[in-house]
Design a protein around this nucleic acid. Sequence first.
DNA 1: TTAGTTAGTTACTTTATGTAAGTAATTATA
DNA 2: TATAATTACTTACATAAAGTAACTAACTAA
Lengths: 106, 106
Amino acid sequence: MDQSVICPRFEKAMGMMSQRWTGLVIYQLLTGPKRFCSLESSMGISGRVLSERLKDLENQGIVKREVFPDTPVRIEYSLTEKGLALQPIVKELEKWSQTWLANDSD
Amino acid sequence: MDQSVICPRFEKAMGMMSQRWTGLVIYQLLTGPKRFCSLESSMGISGRVLSERLKDLENQGIVKREVFPDTPVRIEYSLTEKGLALQPIVKELEKWSQTWLANDSD
DNA sequence: TTAGTTAGTTACTTTATGTAAGTAATTATA
DNA sequence: TATAATTACTTACATAAAGTAACTAACTAA
């Protein structure tokens, strides 16, 4: 019927945010740099997928990975400028959820 | 390590928007009511999954399904007030994509 | 020496999505 | 009066994504 006339940039952004866990990873990083194990345990994602997501987000320039040669080595993930710019989206979703969703069960 | 201290309402909203296609369905419906076959062809989703998503969104009170007893019968999907309230999220993502993504290849 | 931590990876299972064909009700065409 | 076409789906089966659990490597602490 119609051909896809959706803006490819928007479609790409939506595709990224529609991947499971991506939004929550960004949400966590909005509160500051986090370590792998901290992200893993605070949101219940499996290490396998977290590793995959962080790599993708790093490749897209949304997340920055920094190695601190402490002993033991410490690795921190944080948002780049591009990643921080996603904040309004997260904030709007937060507002929506407070307004339209009940806090229990459903 | 940490226990999940993420607001359950926010987590639910994020879970919904993180499902593949959900965001694009809402985006399409923001431009007005649409029929099944129109959604299907305009965004390249399979009928199998579109049917599943529309049912979920209807159950969550985000989408309204209306049957018009024309001949042949016409079925229209549109956003409820709750669904329309998602517009700011979509608009912010649209803005982000225009600012931070290239329009070709990558 | 044994156990524990961090940042992952690997192999395997389960779930989600895609593909293609089918259905039921109706209309249009030869 | 068949035959094909359309809409709004559903069903069966195949492939892709995510979950689970065990493992690795480098190091620390007891």
